[in-house]
């Protein structure tokens, strides 16, 4: 049996000690995206970003007295943004929060999107529903550094026009960015909807996005991911060029509490972003 010596906290490997206690932060702005999705702008007490984050990383938001939950950072600048969908006790309570309220926050956790790998490539973003939230952090990163990336293309779908999130960006900001194409679809249209009606996988197949020098970032409900992967495969995308971000139940965020593992990987530490090539090597348990 291999016996490794104890790696004490003084070792170079240890970057953070006690990452489990949140720091105080303030909700500075609340934007109602849809009936059940809200975006929160969060800053530290002195009005700065609580800590540095990279696109695709996670933060643990704590509503003391209710609970904490892991959310992906959807945008970061002089403050953090997270978008939350009502799905349970904590997220319901978060929808009752008011501007100016103090919350706890800790992080940033996880690997984030492979920004270096993406640099110089065309980026194809495919998202469904609230799945646009993590993808948006990379979109903002790429838009801010527009010359570092090739063409940008977002294919996004939601259940109905009313369920589309970040509407200003989808309809105004991003289409105005040079060489940034935004293609939208909804499962069910309404009287005013002029765009495409249909599910995301079929829409991707219809659009036939180019594979050439392209990295695809995919996030959405599991069923959407499953069928979209089939389409991407038929279009010729290799598993090394497809990235997705996973979610799991998490408590610590630092690879210790044990519950977010897929095989010997911890989603909070080694993920949440995995290439399809990496996922194919992991047990199918997520």
């Amino acid at each position: 049996m291999v016996r490794e010596t104890v790696k004490w906290a003084t070792s170079e490997e240890i970057k953070h000690i006690n990452a489990l206690v949140p720091k105080k932060a303030k909700i500075i702005k609340i934007i109602k995206e849809t009936l059940d999705i809200t975006t929160f702008h969060i800053s530290s007490e002195n009005g700065r970003i609580p800590f540095d984050t990279a696109p695709g990383q996670l933060v643990m938001l704590s509503l003391l007295g209710v609970g904490e939950g892991m959310f992906s950072v959807t945008n970061a600048g002089d403050h953090l943004e997270i978008s939350v969908k009502k799905t349970g006790v904590l997220t319901d309570a978060l929808h009752e929060v008011v501007e100016g309220q103090t919350v706890g926050i800790r992080g940033a956790y996880g690997n984030g999107f492979p920004v270096d790998f993406c640099r110089g490539k065309n980026l194809l973003f495919i998202a469904g529903g609230i799945g646009l939230a993590p993808v948006r952090s990379l979109i903002h990163h790429a838009v801010k550094r527009r010359d570092e990336f090739g063409s940008l293309h977002l294919i996004y779908g939601s259940r109905s026009p009313a369920d589309l999130v970040y509407k200003t960006e989808l309809f105004e900001t991003w289409p105005a960015v040079s060489d940034f194409k935004v293609s939208l679809t909804v499962d069910h249209g309404d009287d005013e909807w002029q765009g495409n009606v249909g599910f995301v996988p079929a829409f991707v197949e219809q659009i036939q996005p180019s594979v050439e020098n392209t990295a695809c970032i995919l996030c959405g409900p599991p069923i959407m991911i499953k069928y979209t992967l089939g389409v991407l495969d038929s279009l010729g995308f290799s598993p090394e060029n497809i990235f997705t971000t996973l979610e799991m139940r998490m408590k610590c965020g630092i690879g210790k509490c044990g519950r977010c593992n897929i095989g010997s990987c911890y989603v909070c530490l080694d993920g949440p972003v995995f290439s399809l090539a990496q996922l194919k090597c992991l047990p199918n348990e997520f």
């Binding site: 104890v6 490997e13 240890i14 953070h16 000690i17 006690n18 990452a19 489990l20 630092i254 690879g255």
Partner: peptide, 9 residues
């Protein structure tokens, strides 16, 4: 105590 984070407790 390893893999980047040490648990202070």
């Amino acid at each position: 105590l390893s893999k980047g984070f040490a648990d202070e407790y």
